[in-house]
Design a protein around this nucleic acid. Sequence first.
DNA 1: TGATTTCCCATGATATCCCATGTGAACCCG
DNA 2: CGGGTTCACATGGGATATCATGGGAAATCA
Lengths: 155, 155
Amino acid sequence: MAGFVSHFTNRLDAKGRVSIPAPFRAVLARDGYEGLYCITSSHCQAVDAGGNELCAEIEKCSEAFAKLSPDHDALSVALFGASENPKVDGDGRMTISDMIREHTGITDQVTFVGMKYKFQIWEPERFREYRAEAQKRAFAMLSGQAPASSGGEPA
Amino acid sequence: MAGFVSHFTNRLDAKGRVSIPAPFRAVLARDGYEGLYCITSSHCQAVDAGGNELCAEIEKCSEAFAKLSPDHDALSVALFGASENPKVDGDGRMTISDMIREHTGITDQVTFVGMKYKFQIWEPERFREYRAEAQKRAFAMLSGQAPASSGGEPA
DNA sequence: TGATTTCCCATGATATCCCATGTGAACCCG
DNA sequence: CGGGTTCACATGGGATATCATGGGAAATCA
């Protein structure tokens, strides 16, 4: 099925490498893998990662402003300056850069969280905290929102 | 026969596998089976499972918010981070992941409960308790709202 | 040249595939 | 109508493939 789902926690090895979960690699390949795109999240201590689909989303974001305009420039710096294209080795591992380490606080373990069109990279303990918070917010959002057309409360 | 109905209890084997009830497999196949979609329920100790129809329902939820926004991210983590695509082997069995085990308390038996457009996965004893409670609620709702003569629940 | 990074292979644990078996229900046939 | 047969399905287990992880050697960089 399509998209990144579920979450996985893997260990960093002595060289700073970590295996990207196999199901996520499969999604990347299906999406027409051209390298992994990573960008630090602006509102949480995580890194967004993905393939073409994530790239397209980010570009769409910056296209909202006219090129050469101050706004566009500022946004470009903010977006692309905080981005990376980590290499993925033949065994499906990526290296955690210093930028990612600093932004996420990752030391020896990494949690990968599927979010359908992208996935996030977290320090496991911080993810647990964020997740608890996210679940509360999600519950509030869904119950505040008008019920969907087809009968039946999702999840 | 449309949708998942009735309920079944099957045993887990030593490898953590359990047979998905044959009638449910038939429904999945008719729905255009592309893999099983599972998501932990936010309001009870069960896992929602289904095919395309359930998947579409979940996606619709997250479409209410702009991608890359904090709200969308939180919702995605709560929904997709708590989801899985268990593989189904040639004999119609799925493996119960640790995530499902923890959320449901399943140890050696699994109850599958049809809910028309999806089905739920329960630890048998917890399901019995939930069911007793649900029946009370349903009865109260129906007798409070509907005329005594009405033959069944609304579609 | 010394320090990293990249590539490649080794390994243990786990998951997946494939086939065997038991059991109950449906079916057929006399 | 009764007895035997077949079938579908849940379950078990051995063989095999996949995956995360570790480490050495070659390549790259400064």
